[in-house]
Design a protein around this nucleic acid. Sequence first.
DNA 1: CGCGCGATTGAGTAATTTCAAATCTAGTGG
DNA 2: CCACTAGATTTGAAATTACTCAATCGCGCG
Lengths: 190, 190
Amino acid sequence: MKKLLREHFEKIIALTDSEFDYIYDHFVFKKIIKHQFLIQQGDRVHNEYFVVKGCLKSYMIDSDDKAHILQFALPDWWVSDYQALNNGSPSTLYLDSVDGAEILSITMENKDKLCAEMHKVEHFFRKKTNWGYVALQQRILSLLNSNAKDRYEQLLKQYPALFKTVPKQLLASYLGVTRETLSRLYTPAK
Amino acid sequence: MKKLLREHFEKIIALTDSEFDYIYDHFVFKKIIKHQFLIQQGDRVHNEYFVVKGCLKSYMIDSDDKAHILQFALPDWWVSDYQALNNGSPSTLYLDSVDGAEILSITMENKDKLCAEMHKVEHFFRKKTNWGYVALQQRILSLLNSNAKDRYEQLLKQYPALFKTVPKQLLASYLGVTRETLSRLYTPAK
DNA sequence: CGCGCGATTGAGTAATTTCAAATCTAGTGG
DNA sequence: CCACTAGATTTGAAATTACTCAATCGCGCG
């Protein structure tokens, strides 16, 4: 998993062995099993997670006990409750794995420390967040513009890996429709 | 407007007069009138915009000629087509003002240059984008979780300034409903 | 074999959209 | 000061879409 993280950084910045080792020492490796929470609503959040293997999901539970999935995180993706992380407020989200996962965890303090010590690490995270920002904008546009069927097709085209791992009812919750509606989409049969 | 920009930076990083002057020299001031485009679909995008006065809107036009508003930008906000800006692809968005505006414009090259030259400027933009990322996540959750009425109330509570400036049909387009539906929301009268 | 989970189907209900028309409002020129 | 206009908002009624709730189906695993 060290290799995966290094390649991830080196897509944006170049690192010597010792630089990367230094960075890597700020992470903690962790395996989690299905249904094990990394974050629960109400928690204080101190960590950000880099997915090495498996698939995580972050979601909220609304007042009707329905889940709404904010994000799936496949290998190579970062995930946390950034709202809670940034301003120290209690989390409004849950974060767990779809089916077991391996992750590298870094505390906010360590991330800020690395960014302060190494300009290029700060550059890396700026670029990274920038891309994440664009991805979220795309998702908002697809929620505003497309119907559920188109959103579903876009999603599968963009992340075919999700199709293999993730039950359709979770995809429905990500797309903003009920599982029944999603089920009816691809059997128009009229 | 120099003051506004400086205060904006100094919420996150401290700057000497000469440092700020240097930064400021990389911006270009511009007034735009109603219906004047900063970006049109198909354009190559080279600039990011900081709003000094007025209100901008970025939006897409779908295949049925309906507009979907991605973002309103009030004073103190940054806006562009970040997707087009980041990967040099033609813009899919339009960016113009709701009713005339004053802006400070910076090219991507100059922004990257400032970030490379001054670590703290890079830090500033990392933090800034981070908050933007959180705001977008909140918007996605409200699209998934809340009905149009609640979204409308949240929006007005969070940005009362929009209520004054922006026609309701644009707010409807931002919220993801038709103007008729929005109109009916606050006259339940049943 | 039977359990449990996910997926599907059906029927009735609720919410939103569409299209058309009416109303309101602010600004303009006479 | 008034009439006129363009843009924005509201209203009505029908059509569409998605939701809810309940029941059924399918399949892998112990």
